[in-house]
Simulated scan of single mutants.
Amino acid sequence: MIFTVTFNPSLDYVVGLDSFREGEVNRSEWEHIYPGGKGINVSMVLKNLDIRNIALGFVGGFTGKEIQRSVKEFGCYTDFVKLKAGNSRINVKIKADKESEINGQGPDISEKELGELFEKLGFIEKGDMLVLAGSIPAALPEDSYEKIMKFLENRGVKIVVDATGELLLKVVKYKPFLIKPNKKELSEIFGVMVENREDIISYAKRLQEIGAKNVLVSMAGEGAILIDENNHIHEMQAPKGVVKNSVGAGDSMVAGFIAGYLLNHDFEEAFRMGVATGSASAFSETLATREEVLKLLDKIEKNER
Score class of each variant (00 low, 15 high):
124 I>S: 06
37 G>R: 07
242 V>D: 15
132 L>D: 01
204 A>P: 03
31 E>K: 10
219 M>D: 00
18 D>S: 12
131 V>G: 01
44 M>R: 14
36 G>L: 08
101 E>R: 14
115 G>Q: 14
223 G>P: 00
32 H>I: 07
62 F>S: 10
287 L>C: 03
244 K>A: 06
182 N>T: 07
253 M>Q: 04
240 K>A: 12
82 K>W: 06
223 G>Y: 00
253 M>N: 00
149 M>D: 01
224 A>F: 01
115 G>T: 13
110 S>N: 08
15 V>E: 04
179 I>Y: 06
262 L>Q: 14
218 S>G: 04
270 A>C: 07
96 A>H: 10
145 Y>L: 03
61 G>R: 01
255 A>S: 07
125 E>W: 02
139 A>H: 09
52 R>N: 13
61 G>L: 02
291 E>C: 02
198 E>N: 14
210 I>T: 08
263 L>W: 05
214 N>Y: 12
94 I>Q: 03
186 L>K: 11
81 V>M: 02
103 N>K: 11
152 L>C: 10
123 F>W: 04
289 T>Y: 09
163 A>F: 11
29 E>S: 14
208 Q>P: 11
27 R>N: 13
120 K>H: 06
251 D>F: 03
190 F>P: 11
69 R>H: 05
91 N>S: 04
276 A>Y: 04
177 F>L: 07
124 I>W: 07
174 Y>R: 09
223 G>F: 00
93 K>L: 14
109 I>D: 11
293 V>I: 11
261 Y>S: 02
202 S>N: 05
200 I>W: 00
288 A>F: 13
48 N>L: 08
130 L>Y: 06
47 K>N: 15
164 T>C: 08
90 I>H: 11
79 D>N: 15
263 L>K: 14
4 T>F: 02
297 L>V: 14
207 L>V: 13
221 G>H: 11
14 V>G: 02
122 G>Q: 11
68 Q>N: 15
11 L>S: 10
206 R>G: 01
21 R>N: 08
65 K>N: 09
194 V>E: 04
208 Q>Y: 11
148 I>H: 01
290 R>A: 15
67 I>F: 01
134 G>C: 10
98 K>W: 05
203 Y>N: 00
182 N>K: 05
195 E>I: 05
64 G>T: 04
223 G>R: 00
185 E>P: 02
143 D>K: 06
98 K>L: 12
107 P>F: 11
44 M>E: 08
178 L>P: 01
56 L>Y: 03
191 G>I: 01
59 V>K: 06
170 K>E: 14
100 S>F: 10
180 K>F: 00
137 P>L: 14
148 I>W: 02
151 F>C: 10
100 S>Q: 07
136 I>V: 10
75 G>I: 09
238 A>F: 04
98 K>F: 13
277 T>Q: 13
100 S>K: 09
177 F>P: 05
224 A>E: 00
157 V>I: 15
98 K>I: 14
285 E>T: 02
